[in-house]
Design a protein around this nucleic acid. Structure first.
Lengths: 189, 189
DNA sequence: CTTGTATATGCAACGAGTTGCATAAGAGGA
DNA sequence: TCCTCTTATGCAACTCGTTGCATATACAAG
């Protein structure tokens, strides 16, 4: 149930509506957890029912009203309990890797454009992360000592950056391999 | 439905029983996709029902009989169709990162042992991958040119190695950060 | 005045994945 | 003899996650 915990963390950082949370999950929270708005609304409803969250109806002008959620005391306790419990180190799930190994039973060269597409998506994301890092964590915006929250946000962002950099480099390795295999078998398409 | 495709790839590489597949998913296939035996048996049953797989009852001595699955023609066609379809670049889901950001609202120093545990798990996995690479892809066992399948297996393994290396380095960064934060706030536990 | 975009919330159905349990045969050791 | 481990297969119940659809307000562009 890590979505619950990701929502608690995000709402502790700043209260907000389901819609706003969905956007954060496409941005900063998205470095390490993803969720669609349907999932978020469903879980928000359940968490409110369980007393983990408080809701406040916020009337707005020029746009529909919203429900602003914030973390209630039991929610904070639930997060704290989870933080003190071990979680299992996760394994990767990489569909593209399944495809690469599957390509041995089809035409490997046909994968090249797909891999290039993935490479672009990851290098775009890397650029976005680096821009965010420049904006939020350097110069006058750099976290002062003792700003624990900012320091921890930064180290998580550095993890996202390292992941994307590693992925781009690996996809280059994959592309080299696919090109080499095509050169060795000039008969293939 | 990537589990289906991962099973097709694995059975094309070598036919086997559900039990054997479950073990492969803890080893080589596990570089990029995980699954428990319950999931595997369920999906194997469905795939057989859909005509994607052939089954053969294999009587054994000294152990229970097994059902050996292999890929039927429609299964091969289904894999090929999927290979030619684009898949979305995936995002990470990293529970530990949720915890790190959540630690800002609790005691960051309490996370240190948890992060160390994860670091060990990842560096153990890295060592296992490197041993496997030595065994299967160097010296007399190195893939000859034109051995497409082996080359592709190797590039996927290199991806697993790169991922674990990157993760270990990042967790060191996280540990540095947590230690630094603890030093700056000597009051905390 | 219609179309498109952004804000805002939600249901229903399905498929994917996890957890707990159950069964059964043979091998090896206490 | 009993206990445990390995091989081998599976059901049931549940939660998690995805996809498609539905609704409503407001603003801007054509």
């Amino acid at each position: 149930m890590a979505l619950e915990h990701a929502i608690l963390v995000s709402l502790l950082e700043k209260p907000g509506s389901g819609y706003e949370l969905a956007h954060r999950f496409e941005r900063s929270i998205g470095y390490f957890w993803t969720a669609t708005h349907q999932q978020i609304y469903r879980v928000l409803g359940r968490m409110e029912g369980d007393g983990l969250l408080d809701v406040r109806e916020v009337p707005q002008q020029g746009r529909p009203d919203k429900k602003e959620y914030s973390v209630a005391a039991p929610g904070r306790a639930a997060l704290s309990a989870w933080l003190h419990q071990p979680v299992e180190p996760e394994s990767i799930r990489h569909e593209l890797a399944v495809k690469i190994r599957g390509a041995a039973f089809d035409d490997p060269a046909a994968l090249i454009s797909e891999v290039e597409r993935h490479r672009k998506a990851h290098s775009d994301r890397l650029a976005r992360y680096l821009t965010g890092e420049q904006r939020d964590f350097t110069g006058p915006e750099a976290p002062r000592p003792l700003d624990t929250g900012r320091e921890l946000q930064h180290v998580v962002l550095r993890g996202g950056i390292a992941f994307e950099r590693m992925t781009v480099a690996w996809l280059d390795d994959v592309l080299d391999t696919l090109h080499r295999l095509r050169a060795e078998r000039p008969g293939a398409t």
